[in-house]
Design a protein around this nucleic acid. Sequence first.
DNA 1: GTACTTGCAAACAGTTTGCATAGGC
DNA 2: GCCTATGCAAACTGTTTGCAAGTAC
Lengths: 137, 137
Amino acid sequence: MENLKDCFQKLKDSGLKVTPQRLAIVKILEGNTCHPSADKIYNEVKKKYPMISFATVYKTLKVLAEIGEIQQLKIVEKKVNFDPNTDPHNHFFCKKCREIRDVFPGKKINLKEIDGHLIEKYQVYFYGICSKCRKQN
Amino acid sequence: MENLKDCFQKLKDSGLKVTPQRLAIVKILEGNTCHPSADKIYNEVKKKYPMISFATVYKTLKVLAEIGEIQQLKIVEKKVNFDPNTDPHNHFFCKKCREIRDVFPGKKINLKEIDGHLIEKYQVYFYGICSKCRKQN
DNA sequence: GTACTTGCAAACAGTTTGCATAGGC
DNA sequence: GCCTATGCAAACTGTTTGCAAGTAC
């Protein structure tokens, strides 16, 4: 997500509307490096829109992901966390404080430590179309 | 997971029992490169033990993960998939066939393609203890 | 005015839990 | 015989859906 204007333009370009609820959610996400869950976003936006429902939050987050303004992280069990930074970068999940921290590429990784974080394990997930399915098409 | 014997030894060493159900589940997982979900494992083991319950499957998988015989993959939305190969390697999820394929390190990755699989996006997740929490201890 | 969006409630999927019974060692 | 494991059902978490009413453009 670049900025509010860009985000709203993309929404409009996709035939979607800029509602007060969406504005509030986008404002919470813009520049946010905390990787909030839907739950966190719901509680935050509730302060300004006490009537907002979980459904609206989820639907908005789905829409924002679809137009490429945010990305979903499946780093914590069961939950999805959201990141407005869609540039390539990695994530560190601390089992103690349970926070997700950004880890930017170009750093030395010795598979034991990165940015001072102690690495116990790591996972690399690729998403796309496998060689078999590419051939079938 | 090395082999059945090793696995059972580890169970016993942890004060856990080798039951027919656990034997059946471990047999399904041994050498399995399909990354089955709990659901798949349940249906497979049901063929031999029609009375087995989901609870038993989940409890067994939890136990096996705890003693380090299998690892959990959070690559697909909502579900957890299980991998008896705990050596460092990566995973590719195909959005067409929805299968998870192993990708072994040491390969050239140009971030567009690996093993003939078309990469649309990728995620790197590190797990451990962050620098902040390390200092506090 | 016409889609699209909202908020509610209910449904849903995957997983976990409590508990009485069964069974491994 | 003790303690762990099983199977059932019910609970739980995070997320999604259908729908009537509301609203952006």
